[in-house]
Simulated assay, not measured.
Amino acid sequence: MNTVFLAPDQVVLMLPGITRGQLAQWRYLGTGGPRYRKLGKKVLYVESEVLEWVEGSARTGTAREAS
């Protein structure tokens, strides 16, 4: 299996409604978003991990989840 790396702009194209700024905010705060790699100043995402992150957010209802 080949690993496909994506730049933030490519991730934004995959995820309608998510902005490059939102991705940056998630990275800065460490509060969400898909996992990423940082090589120097370059930020990269693994395509399969972005898709897993989206699938992990699947919900069946809007009620608050039990704690």
Score class of each variant (00 low, 15 high):
Val54Asn: 04
Thr62Gln: 11
Ala58Gln: 13
Lys41Asn: 14
Val11Arg: 00
Leu29Ala: 10
Phe5Ile: 02
Tyr28Phe: 12
Asp9Leu: 09
Glu52Met: 07
Val11Ala: 08
Arg20Gly: 10
Gly40His: 05
Leu23Cys: 03
Gln25Met: 11
Arg27Gly: 12
Leu23His: 06
Gly40Ala: 05
Ala7Lys: 14
Leu23Tyr: 07
Leu13Thr: 11
Pro16Met: 05
Leu51Lys: 04
Val54Ala: 01
Ala63Tyr: 10
Gly21Glu: 13
Gly32Val: 09
Arg35Gln: 05
Arg64Leu: 12
Gly33Pro: 04
Lys41Val: 12
Ser67Leu: 11
Val50Leu: 03
Val12Tyr: 10
Phe5Ser: 09
Ser57Ile: 09
Gly61Asp: 13
Asn2Thr: 06
Leu15Asn: 00
Arg59Asn: 04
Asn2Cys: 08
Val46Ala: 05
Glu49Trp: 00
Gln10Thr: 07
Arg20Trp: 10
Arg59Met: 14
Tyr28Trp: 12
Arg20Ile: 13
Arg27His: 06
Lys42Thr: 13
Val54Arg: 01
Gly56Gln: 02
Gln22Val: 13
Ala63Lys: 03
Gly30Asp: 09
Pro8Cys: 11
Ala63Gly: 13
Lys41Pro: 10
Val43Leu: 12
Gly32Met: 08
Phe5Trp: 13
Trp53Arg: 01
Tyr28Met: 12
Phe5Gln: 04
Val12Lys: 05
Lys42Asp: 08
Pro16Ala: 06
Gly32Tyr: 11
Leu51Ser: 09
Lys42Leu: 01
Tyr45Cys: 05
Tyr45Glu: 01
Leu6Arg: 06
Gly40Trp: 02
Ser57Gly: 15
Pro34His: 04
Ser48Pro: 03
Lys41Ala: 13
